[in-house]
Computed example of a mutant assay.
Amino acid sequence: MSSSLLAKPQMRGLLGKRLRFHIAGAVLVSVGGALLYKFCVAEPRKRAYAEFYKNYDAMKDFEAMREAGVFESVQPKNS
């Protein structure tokens, strides 16, 4: 009598049902991670580079490094 009280386990289509659920979850998590990376890492990094190069003077930086003796092939100016 107790066996009639238990529901039969689902045997057919169980893997497909579970895969649909897990694939949908994986897609949502991956898209969420990509958006989080884009807006929290990539965009601020682009803005920081743009701000840095807006006022960057390569010759001024080169002269400062030359005076500091960073380069072996370029001698400091004797002024």
Rank of each mutant, 00 (worst) to 15 (best):
M1R: 03
M1W: 05
M1K: 07
S2E: 09
S3V: 15
S3P: 09
S4F: 10
S4E: 13
S4K: 13
L5T: 06
L6V: 11
L6A: 15
L6I: 15
A7I: 13
A7T: 11
P9F: 04
P9D: 09
Q10R: 15
Q10F: 12
M11Y: 12
M11S: 12
M11F: 15
M11Q: 11
G13Y: 07
G13C: 06
L14P: 01
L14M: 14
L14F: 10
L15P: 01
L15N: 09
L15R: 15
G16A: 08
G16N: 09
K17P: 00
K17W: 04
K17C: 08
R18V: 09
R18N: 05
R18F: 03
R18P: 00
L19K: 11
L19T: 15
R20V: 02
R20A: 08
R20H: 03
R20D: 01
R20K: 11
F21M: 11
F21A: 15
H22V: 14
I23W: 07
I23L: 13
G25W: 03
G25A: 12
G25E: 11
A26H: 14
A26R: 13
L28N: 12
L28D: 08
L28Q: 08
V29W: 05
V29N: 09
S30P: 05
S30K: 12
S30G: 13
V31D: 02
G33P: 00
G33D: 02
G33Y: 03
G33M: 05
G33L: 13
L35M: 14
L35S: 05
L36C: 08
L36F: 07
L36R: 03
Y37N: 08
K38M: 06
F39S: 06
F39M: 11
F39E: 04
C40W: 14
C40G: 14
V41S: 09
E43L: 05
E43I: 04
K46N: 13
K46D: 13
K46Q: 14
R47W: 06
A48W: 03
A48K: 15
Y49K: 05
Y49Q: 10
A50I: 03
F52R: 12
Y53M: 06
K54N: 11
Y56H: 04
Y56D: 03
Y56A: 12
D57L: 10
A58Q: 04
A58H: 02
M59L: 13
K60L: 14
K60I: 15
K60T: 10
K60E: 02
D61F: 04
D61E: 03
D61R: 01
F62A: 00
E63C: 08
E63F: 04
E63H: 07
A64C: 10
A64G: 08
M65I: 04
M65R: 02
M65F: 03
R66Q: 01
R66L: 00
E67C: 06
E67Q: 08
A68V: 01
A68C: 09
A68M: 06
A68W: 02
G69W: 01
G69H: 02
G69F: 01
V70S: 00
V70H: 01
V70M: 01
V70F: 01
F71C: 01
F71M: 00
E72S: 12
S73W: 02
V74F: 00
V74Y: 00
Q75E: 08
Q75S: 11
P76C: 06
K77A: 04
K77M: 04
N78S: 14
S79F: 05
S79Q: 15
S79E: 09
